[in-house]
Simulated scan of single mutants.
Amino acid sequence: MAQFEANRAIAGWYAKRAAERDYPGLFLVMSDPVELLCREVLLASRQGDRGLLPGQIQGCGLGVMHGRARFFAQREDAFRDYLAEGRVFGSHGRELVAANSIRAGQYDDGCSRRLTEWVIRANLQVRGYGFKPYIAPACSSGALTILRILEGKWNYSSNYLGGVYFGGKNRTTERGIEWEALPLPELLFDRLKCAYQNLEKIL
C-alpha cells in the first residue's frame, strides 16, 4: 500500500493525459500494486464524457509470478505438473492463486496452496534484500508479457472483470480480451472466488 500511495499520482497523471487526448490504445500498468493501480488509472481518466475504457487498461505483474512457479516446479517433483498444466491467477501479491494443474483429476489443493506460498514468499524475499531487482519483473512481467499482448498471444496479465482487475491467462483479440476458458476443479474455483472477493474488498 505504501507503493500504491507513491505510484497512484504518477499513474493518475498519465491517465488524465491519455483521456484528454482521447487515447485509443492500450494503457499497460507495470508498477506495484498492479491491480489497484489499474483501477486508479480507470478512475483518474474519467473526465466528463471522456475517459479510458476498462478494457484498454491491463496490468503486467503476473508474468513474474508464473516464472517463479515454474522455477520451483523445475526443482521440486511435487510441483512438476505445473510445467505442463499449471496456472497462476489473481494478483501479483497476497491474493495470488497458483494451481499445480487445472485438470480435475490432477489438481492437488494442498500442493497448490504450498506452491502459492512459496511463490509469494519468494516475492517478499526479493523485496527484503533492500532494493527492488528489476531483471525478473522487467523480463517476465514486462518485455515478454508486453510483446505477447501486442502480438495477440496468450499471456498472464490482469484485466477488468466485473469491477475488479484480476489476473489470469488471456489474449487480446480484435473483439477485446479473451480469457482462457477452463472447466476448473471446484476447489480451485473456490480459491479464485475468495481471491476475487478479497480484491473487491480492498477496492
Rank of each mutant, 00 (worst) to 15 (best):
I120Q: 03
R191S: 02
R68A: 14
W154N: 01
A104T: 05
W13M: 11
S31Y: 04
E178K: 04
R50V: 04
Q106R: 13
R103V: 12
I102P: 02
G55D: 14
V119A: 07
N100P: 00
G55W: 07
V64S: 10
D81W: 03
A11M: 11
E95A: 06
P54N: 11
N7P: 05
L144Q: 09
A73D: 06
R175C: 07
G61Y: 05
L192G: 04
W13G: 08
L96H: 03
G63V: 08
V34Q: 07
A6W: 01
G128P: 08
C38S: 12
F131V: 06
A18Q: 10
E117R: 15
N159I: 00
D108Y: 00
L124G: 04
L203D: 03
A138N: 08
T116F: 11
G12K: 03
D32V: 02
D109A: 10
L26Q: 12
A44W: 04
A19P: 13
Q3K: 09
E5S: 09
G48S: 09
I120A: 04
D190F: 00
Y165P: 01
R191W: 00
L199P: 02
A84N: 09
V97Y: 01
E186P: 01
P137G: 14
K153S: 06
M30A: 14
A44C: 10
Q74N: 11
A44F: 03
A9P: 00
Q3N: 08
L203P: 00
A69F: 03
M65G: 01
A84E: 13
K193T: 06
T116P: 09
M30L: 15
A99M: 13
G25H: 13
R127M: 12
M65L: 12
E95Y: 08
A99I: 10
K16G: 05
A69H: 02
S158H: 02
N155E: 05
L184F: 13
Y196V: 00
Q197I: 02
Y134F: 06
N123D: 11
V34N: 08
I135N: 05
Y129V: 12
K153M: 08
N155F: 07
Q106G: 00
L188P: 03
A181V: 12
R121K: 13
I120M: 02
R94N: 04
D22A: 11
F166C: 07
P137E: 12
H66E: 15
F72Q: 07
F89I: 03
E20Q: 10
G61H: 11
A78G: 10
R121T: 14
P54M: 12
A18P: 08
E178C: 10
Y165S: 01
Q3D: 12
F27E: 14
C60A: 15
M30W: 02
